[in-house]
Amino acid sequence: MTTITQAATLTAAQRQETALNSRKQIASNFQDFLKLLTTQLQHQDPTAPLDTNQFTQQLVQFAQVEQQLATNSHLERLITVQETTQLTALTPLIGRTVEADSGKVALQGGEARGSYTLRADATAVTVTIRDSTGRVVAQGPGQTRAGRQEFFWDGVSASGQRWPDGAYTVEVQAQYGSSLETVPTTVIGRITGAERADGTLKLAMGDLRIDTTAIRAVQPDR
């Protein structure tokens, strides 16, 4: 099932509610101020009239604060529209296969794919898959030629246990003579949804979440 979620909507709504409450408070304070001013003017001592300059300054300050709150409210609306537009723009990626930088792979339909790039021919390469607890669920040799290489996992462990679809940690280690190096990896999988969480756009690849900035390639439809 493909999904698009706006996790930031609640945050935007909360910001708008806060701004609305602030405007209500300012309006209430302004009304109280006008009542106080009217009462004082009605009961002022004719021989010692009140200093209206101070009241005028306060009126100006109230007006400035109210105007600033209104401006903030307009900006909040613009931000919300922009966030929604950015999220909607990701819709064409849903259902497509993408490759993105990630230290995890997405097991989808019993298949997980990824890649790594070797700086030179390696003596040996080991690909290790771990579950969320760090337990090794699969391990095997990888291609040792220099350049980009892909790996594939069928979701089955060495003991024959089939693991459920989900996100798994992957580690690729390359042996260069006596030196052992950990090689960065990518994940290759089908996009199933898009969301905004904590102000960041993310794509869903099953249970795996990847930043849009991590995308390396979008493969053509087959």
Score class of each variant (00 low, 15 high):
M1W: 13
M1E: 15
T2F: 11
T3A: 10
A7C: 06
T11Q: 15
A12C: 07
A13K: 13
Q14P: 04
Q14L: 12
E17A: 10
L20Q: 13
N21L: 13
R23Y: 06
A27L: 07
S28V: 05
K35F: 05
T39D: 15
Q42T: 08
D45H: 14
P46H: 10
T47K: 13
A48S: 09
P49E: 02
P49F: 03
T52I: 15
T52L: 15
L69R: 09
A70K: 04
T71S: 12
N72H: 06
L75F: 02
R77Y: 08
L78C: 04
I79P: 13
I79M: 13
T80R: 07
T80I: 00
T84L: 14
T85D: 14
Q86D: 10
A89G: 14
T91D: 14
L93A: 07
R96H: 12
T97L: 12
T97W: 13
V98S: 01
G103T: 10
K104L: 11
A106E: 09
A106I: 08
L107D: 07
Q108D: 12
E111S: 13
A112N: 00
G114E: 05
T117A: 14
L118P: 06
L118T: 04
L118A: 04
A122L: 07
A124H: 05
V125S: 07
T128F: 08
I129K: 02
R130T: 03
D131Y: 00
S132V: 11
R135H: 12
R135W: 03
V137C: 00
Q139R: 14
G140C: 04
G142E: 02
G142H: 05
Q143Y: 13
T144L: 06
R145H: 12
R148G: 03
W153M: 12
V156Y: 00
W163I: 01
W163C: 01
P164Y: 06
P164C: 06
D165K: 07
D165N: 15
D165I: 05
G166S: 09
T169Y: 09
V170K: 03
E171N: 08
Q173W: 10
S178A: 07
T186K: 12
V187E: 08
V187G: 04
T192Q: 08
G193I: 01
G193A: 01
A194N: 09
R196F: 00
T200E: 02
T200I: 00
L201P: 05
K202H: 00
K202I: 00
L208F: 09
I210A: 03
I215Y: 00
D221S: 11
